[in-house]
Design a protein around this nucleic acid. Structure first.
Length: 239
DNA sequence: GCCAACGTTGGC
DNA sequence: GCCAACGTTGGC
């Protein structure tokens, strides 16, 4: 493996992939849940799901979560220490890994985790730079391995070690991502925000973009329309 | 199951 | 560095 670095909290870190456990498959049934669609308003107390277990109640019957096939994943491109460890991991760092591929570990938020569990091989995700001088979308990556157990949850030395997660029932998952390309130009959050506001007022593709409606989620879904709209901005002049 | 306290995210 | 937004925890 390789280096490892992490991003904050829910965001991720990475290391080269390799699978040790390819078969682990986290997915299992344990499913997830929460949220997805539900969350509408504010978080309802019941939590959204939360902990892996409780959702059981049957409340949710439907395995029906809307099927998304495009994603946005946040990571911090600038150095920042968390428990003495640098969590920096920008798109340039991903390019540096063997095969330009790494595992997106360190996600410790159930909604974000569940979105990763929904990811399918071959789908695309934007690499978003957060908590930095110029936040925004830097490039595109591809999901190259579907969700499996995030080993960092059991590593006491890791920033995202989770003492509450048991080996026989791991809480956290990760996927492997491969760098695909940089955007032709960096699309800053400020520009996306202006467009979002316009679209909210008069209609448009970025009307309900999760980046604004669920700002703190580090792994979020995009509709095809949103994904394509963002890509179309590459050829425009900055707003 | 409710909800106040607490912790984290992440823009600014 | 500040702090608003919001997810999580835990008492009751």
């Amino acid at each position: 493996m390789a280096p490892k670095m992490r991003t904050r909290g829910t965001t991720r870190s990475l290391q080269s992939s390799n699978d040790e456990e390819t078969k682990t498959n986290a997915h299992s049934e344990d499913s997830p849940l929460e949220v997805g669609q539900a969350l509408r308003g504010k978080r309802k107390a019941s939590g959204s799901g939360n902990t892996g277990k409780q959702e059981s109640s049957k409340a949710r019957k439907s395995p029906e979560r809307p099927q998304y096939c495009h994603w946005l994943m946040k990571s911090e491109p600038e150095s920042r220490l968390e428990n003495g460890i640098d969590v920096k991991f920008g798109i340039e760092d991903l390019k540096t890994l063997p095969n330009q591929t790494g595992c997106w570990d360190g996600v410790r938020n159930y909604q974000a985790r569940n979105f990763m569990r929904d990811m399918k091989e071959g789908q695309h995700a934007f690499f978003y730079h957060s908590n930095c001088k110029e936040p925004g979308i830097a490039g595109v990556m591809k999901i190259v391995k579907e969700s499996y157990v995030d080993h960092t949850q059991f590593d006491k030395k890791d920033v995202h070690y989770d003492a509450t997660s048991k080996a026989d029932n791991p809480k956290w998952s990760m996927v492997d991502v491969q760098f695909e390309r940089m955007l032709k130009r960096f699309i800053p959050l400020s520009e996306l925000k202006k467009i979002h506001l316009q679209h909210k007022a008069k209609g448009g593709s970025l009307n309900g973009m999760a980046l604004f409606t669920r700002a703190r989620l580090s792994v979020q879904p995009l509709t095809r329309e949103e994904f394509e709209f963002v890509l179309s901005l590459e050829d425009n002049n900055p707003l």
